[in-house]
Write a protein that binds this DNA or RNA. Structure first.
Lengths: 329, 329
DNA sequence: TTGTATGCGTTATCAG
DNA sequence: CTGATAACGCATACAA
């Protein structure tokens, strides 16, 4: 392997000089800069990030933590968007990113987690799917050992930022739009998890709209499960006018149930996954740009690692309707 | 940060001794092993993988190369399976894995690719979605600079292994099973890419069956595209008895087209993605365990990196039928 | 503006 | 079986 030392020799300068041009230091004459650069290309020199990291004590490595326990396909779509968005932006910024699944650290206590990430020389974390119940992970974040960006979870602090859409507003808007097309008064609202942040936000939006329009809303928790939504629909839908769900998967479960029951009720979803195109009916939903969100999360993490302080970032959303032919073309 | 040096001091031994117990060298007395280990836990020492890698010149880092250009959802499911399978196994083996998308290296020539992976201290590659047309990537593999495992592509060599199911056999079997339930003679076979390895293998299996059963098969390339399969179905299905596709996505496209045309023909798929549950009809298909395949790929790569020589690995497959209620529960 | 020297935390070689 | 000590490739404070 050709090292900085060989480059120095070839260019007839000192090692430190090479290092300086490599890291774009000021105070290097154009002349020597050129000498070094030609030597670099001639020798095909590749800086060794490992050595660089060891010496500078800056690895630029971050971990993308993802909550994949359940093998649900539409969730795959969302996570793939997160992963591609994050990885591409990381490459662009010269950062190094590894993907870590919750299951890999599920059994660990805080100390073990810290040790694990330290041994991996991780400097920052991006967490998708953080829930209040996950106390170990929560304390890891609070420990301040790592700069952290939380996707879809609150918790802004000195070295923790949060990024998400305005879930309450989005739910309010999509439901409003949905009800404009379908005049209904008795609604079944299938919420997410009982004490989940996004679930609560969306529920808040729904309640606000219900107040404004004087709707009669029955609220049930579907746990973001397609199957659970199916059951709730079968149980409660018959005497309701419409079903509004806090996620597309639940909306699909509800729609499929309605078809099997052979009754029709309009259904409204949330997330904008392409599976909606296969559900049989075109539904209203909220489209989140997961890729962009992850991309911005990486950028925000980079800012934190450079000394910035935590902040709350709100991303835009769109109201859409998804149909099969759009999805496949 | 507490280092090996602190541990040595605490345990009252030399640095090198600590290193030896850390790496499970023989020739270390139980006594000193204990002294060192207690010191380690007391101090909460975490070995620095960066320093270790620099010194040993072994990073244990591998890259998982994935071909995500088209944003197709069922493909997401497959890639997520690959990713989780690979990452979990890598953690288990103490390897370090980064995910790289084809788009990130698409513009590079061989030299640039080599440089990129070297700068990342990558020692091995796992490639999913390699196609003959990708000459730069092909030459990267042949360069021998990195140990490589190819998923679903041929190319066994000194330091290259290949892992895949027996595509010809699987296509033969699933089509046979399918035709046992649906007595047909005139078949539309929608193949994948014209000169793709898996496509050719599957086509081979189909042809063999056609010979055996004296079927009349019209072969068309669907390019693994749902939309293309839809078009082909609309064009050719009316005077055929059944449609057999080289992928589930194309099978779904065909099925949806048939529904829209309001005619019925049995359809057979290949891959076993859960989206099949949403297609409206229960179809025959081949189930691949993508997670296990990726997991084994990592294991194989590890073997290569330890000096093993390349080999061809054939994974098992299953014939199944997917229905909605199975998918969501 | 450039060069020298030291250290980052390990591993590995070789003496003892 | 254990301990010095020289690398590994680079960054950086400091001297020139």
């Amino acid at each position: 392997m050709v090292s900085i030392r060989d480059v120095a020799k070839e260019a007839g300068v000192a090692i430190s000089t090479v290092s300086k041009v490599l890291n774009h230091y000021p105070n290097v004459s154009e002349e020597t800069k050129e000498k070094v650069n030609t030597a670099i290309t001639e020798l095909g020199f590749v800086p060794n990030t490992i050595a660089s990291a060891l010496s500078s004590k800056k690895t630029g490595r971050v971990a993308l933590l993802i909550d994949v326990d359940r093998p649900v396909q539409a969730v795959d779509e969302i996570f793939m968007q997160y992963i591609t968005g994050a990885i591409n932006k990381a490459k662009e910024k010269g950062m190094d990113i590894i993907t870590v699944f919750f299951t890999m650290i599920a059994e660990m206590n805080v100390e073990e987690m810290i040790r694990y990430f330290q041994s991996q020389s991780i400097e920052g974390l991006i967490i998708c799917g953080f829930s209040r119940e996950d106390t170990a992970l929560g304390r890891l974040v609070k420990s301040g050992k790592f700069k952290t960006v939380l996707i879809d979870a609150p918790g802004v602090g000195e070295n923790t930022s949060s990024i998400h859409i305005d879930n309450a507003k989005a739910q309010y808007e999509v439901a409003k739009e949905f009800l404009k097309k379908n005049t209904c008064r008795k609604i079944l609202y299938i919420s997410g998890k009982k004490s989940g942040y996004v679930s609560e936000e969306r529920l808040k939006g729904m309640k606000q709209l219900a107040d404004e329009l004087g709707l009669k809303v029955l609220i049930r928790n579907g746990d973001f499960s397609e199957l659970e939504a199916r059951k709730l629909t079968m149980q409660y839908a018959p005497d309701k006018d419409a079903i509004i769900c806090a996620s597309d998967m639940m909306a699909i479960g509800a729609m499929k149930a309605l078809i099997d029951m052979d009754i029709y009720r309009p259904v409204c979803g949330f997330d904008g996954v392409s599976l909606m195109g296969y559900a049989g009916k075109q539904m209203h939903t909220v489209k989140q740009d997961f890729k962009k969100i992850a991309s911005n999360a990486v950028e925000e993490l980079s800012r934190l690692m450079e000394g910035g302080t935590g902040q709350d970032i709100v991303m835009p959303h769109k109201l859409i309707r998804i149909k099969y032919l759009d999805v496949i073309s």
